[in-house]
Design a protein around this nucleic acid. Structure first.
Lengths: 245, 245
DNA sequence: CGAGCCCTTGAAACTCGTCAATGATCGTGG
DNA sequence: CCACGATCATTGACGAGTTTCAAGGGCTCG
């Protein structure tokens, strides 16, 4: 059972030796299968391990007392939690599985073992930095873009992130999200998500079929979103290592 | 020229030796004075140093091409940028000064020098983790709370953060922000910020005078916001459970 | 074949934004 | 010391974008 998406993702942030690659690959053995709707952690749980999504889809979210939900991040294959969570006593947000997933859990000790390899430590830090960058862009998205721009921007982000780990075919990718989940991500009602997606479909920019998103006109999508992929840092050259995390 | 707010802030995340305290205090010498409106970095600048705000107020923000602005974080006295920014080739957001400030700049080397002390490294990591946590809460705020809840929540956050570094007196604190800036933070128009603040004032919950916010009824403010200070991690020790929701 | 979830669509209501004008405050220079 | 301009706060009227409510239809799975 391969950890390849994870290795591919980290490889864009550092160059690994044979040993390091082996170590990363071994993680597959410690993984477990989860089903849609499975909870991974909830707010208040002790933060004693983080997760690496090897296949499938998971997300982080926060719940308000009255049931409103804000999705904070998606973990596609190859994505992991920020190891810094291990420094806090407890989680202050929740995680759940959105589509059947194979997920590995890492304890503080296993992360420290990995981070003895400077290349791995550097890759994880750079990768986590990029995830933070995505979070900042989401704040801009939710705060200052219209519904149409928001949806377009999120689709651009997904497309770019998935392409980077080889999870797109031609111009389409798996997107097993309900419109309610997209709504909780973009702070829009499911109804309005629907209307916006219909509009994108009507303009032949993006269509959806069987949980697949097909980008027919990436130029138009990107223009609609004002999408600038720079923040995804898929271009950076590996540099100097920086301490622990 | 004290660095005390910074030391106080970090001290809540680790216990420092005499040597470590000295080292942190020395930073004050390398600081510089800035005026309101001064830019610190803009998107695209090389990320070769980060900033520690010793006094005054600065913020991070992103600009959209048409001029819309989203403020991403405030740096009160004692706050610093995440050192991880040094791992990226360039900034993808901007920073500016909002109120006369004394600010120190740290290069990658100086951060590495500090992080040779494990307590300092740990404190900075934990502190940065908390900053990230604030960012997540902001996404919830902007995404899923009403104008009234948003404003209340932000005021609760400010009050709690400032109290933790001793920058409150009684129930008031300095808040030299314009309503336009609050609007760009909370994704509301300045006009609507005004109406919301008026409402808080009408209900005798919070008043404003000479750039000071005065909290008359913290209970009501907290209730209005649904504020739970847990995410600020000002109370807990690693691993120690606390019975809460 | 039914149950449940999800998508789709319309109509009405509401929150919040935009526009515009007035007033208050403050720093600056005459 | 006062006049001026600039920035910011305040207020009202109106409009736009989005939410809510409600109902119907399609798909999938047991």
């Amino acid at each position: 059972m391969s950890t390849s998406a994870w290795v591919r993702r980290l490889s864009s942030f550092a160059t690994f030796s044979h040993d390091e690659l082996n170590l990363l690959e071994q993680l597959g053995g410690a993984s477990r299968q989860y089903a849609t709707q499975d909870g991974l952690v909830k707010a208040g749980d002790p933060a004693d391990r983080i997760f690496v999504v090897l296949e499938g889809l998971a997300c982080q979210f926060k719940l308000l007392p009255d049931g409103r939900r804000q999705i904070l991040a998606y973990l596609f294959p190859g994505d992991m939690c920020d190891p810094r969570h291990l420094l806090a006593p407890r989680w202050n947000h929740a995680m759940c599985v959105l589509w059947p997933a194979r997920i590995a859990a890492l304890t503080l000790e296993s992360v420290q073992r990995l981070e003895r390899y400077p290349n791995i430590a550097a890759a994880i830090s750079r990768y986590s930095m990029m995830q933070q960058s995505i979070g900042r862009e989401w704040l801009v998205n939710v705060g200052h873009r219209t519904a149409y721009e928001r949806v377009s921007h999120l689709l651009c982000e997904f497309y770019t992130r998935l392409k980077a780990v080889g999870l797109t075919t031609d111009d389409s990718f798996e997107l097993p999200l309900t419109q309610a989940e997209l709504g909780d991500t973009l702070a829009l009602s499911a109804v309005h998500i629907n209307r916006t997606l219909m509009e994108l479909r009507r303009l032949r920019i993006v269509t959806f079929l069987n949980r697949q998103a097909v980008i027919h006109d990436y130029g138009a999508l990107r223009a609609a979103a004002g999408f600038d992929p720079g923040y995804l840092q898929l271009d950076t050259e590996p540099g100097v290592p920086l301490g622990r995390d």
